[in-house]
């Protein structure tokens, strides 16, 4: 992939970071309001991107709106930098913005992610950008957006509470293992995007800015740093993050989130860190 210089001169094919300035302004206004109303979904005029809807267009638009020439971008999908869609999105920004990219969590100023939060604790200088397929945490319970908007205005989350209660009564625990809804700053119920429940606690009081972009559903929302983010649960059935009870076969970690890999046709399994950078760091003496 040959990196092209940022193109922001008249006559060049695309603007820096692809989006035109009017679109960036519109997204930036939405981001500021999203930070001011933590967990509230802000509709925005999402644009068609050169990547398909559902493949990270919301995250890409948010990243494009915040990205500066000195930023260092990391893109992960399923925790890994080398999954095909992560490779593709990273290459897109290297091409249309000419910015530096990295696979190292510690070096990144912006981390665009699908389905994971890195294991390494984030810092104040970092912004997480989440790709969100369905921003509405209530959509399985109430698909009508006009109705869910009303419920959010009222702070009426009884639908979600009843569902959780029924799950616990029926099967002894919450039915959701990923994309488990969270309460943000005690007011808005929010989809954390389809991260495993294991990652939910990382949203709570994080030093980093957390931005969420849903392109097809045309919503942006945010969690500011140091904001209370609590997984929906009941006092007598506290939320329980889960991971496979094994050690990483590459680095030996017993605390990281693991991918389970079918190793042979006898049903043998091995487990390795889903966060490839974390696994690499653990292996480095």
């Amino acid at each position: 992939m040959n990196a092209m210089p940022p193109r922001n001169t008249p006559g060049s094919a695309y603007n820096f970071a692809y989006l035109d300035e009017a679109t960036k302004r519109m997204i930036r206004r939405a981001i500021l309001k999203a930070l001011a109303i933590p967990g509230h979904q802000i509709p925005f005029g999402a644009r068609e991107m050169p990547l398909p809807y559902g493949w990270g267009t919301g995250g890409i638009q948010v990243t494009a709106a915040i990205l500066g020439p000195r930023d260092v971008l990391k893109v992960i999908d399923q925790g890994a930098d080398d999954t095909t869609n992560a490779v593709s999105i990273r290459a897109f920004f290297a091409k249309v913005a000419g910015i530096a990219t990295t696979t190292r969590t510690a070096e990144a100023t912006i981390i665009q992610t699908r389905h994971r939060i890195p294991e390494r604790p984030l810092t104040e200088g970092q912004v997480m950008v989440f790709q969100v397929p369905m921003p509405e945490p209530l959509f399985r319970l109430e698909p009508r957006l006009a109705e869910t908007r009303r419920l959010h205005a009222l702070g009426d989350y009884s639908l979600a509470q009843v569902k959780l209660y029924e799950d616990i009564a029926k099967q002894g625990e919450a039915g959701t293992s990923y994309n488990h809804p969270v309460m943000v700053a005690g007011r808005y119920l929010m989809s954390p995007s389809p991260i495993p429940g294991f990652d939910n606690p990382k949203l709570h009081n994080s030093p980093a800015i957390m931005l969420f972009g849903a392109g097809r559903e045309k919503k942006i929302y945010a969690v500011p740093p140091y904001t209370a983010v609590e997984s929906l649960d009941f006092d007598d059935h506290p939320f329980r993050p889960m991971r496979a009870p094994h050690a990483c076969s590459a680095c030996g970690s017993t605390t990281s989130y693991l991918d389970e890999i079918v190793a042979d046709d006898q049903g043998g399994r091995i487990y390795v860190c889903s966060d490839t950078d974390h696994c690499r760091e653990n292996q480095t003496p």
Binding site: P52, Y53, G54, W55, T83, S177, Y178, P194, P196, D259
Partner: peptide
């Protein structure tokens, strides 16, 4: 159809992190 095809076809993307949590669940 551009929105619909994107979201239907995104199911081709890896989802093993989510599937892993479903397995544990």
């Amino acid at each position: 159809n551009v929105e619909a095809t994107g979201f239907v076809e995104h199911l081709k993307l890896p989802h093993h992190v989510d599937f892993q949590s479903e397995l544990e669940k």
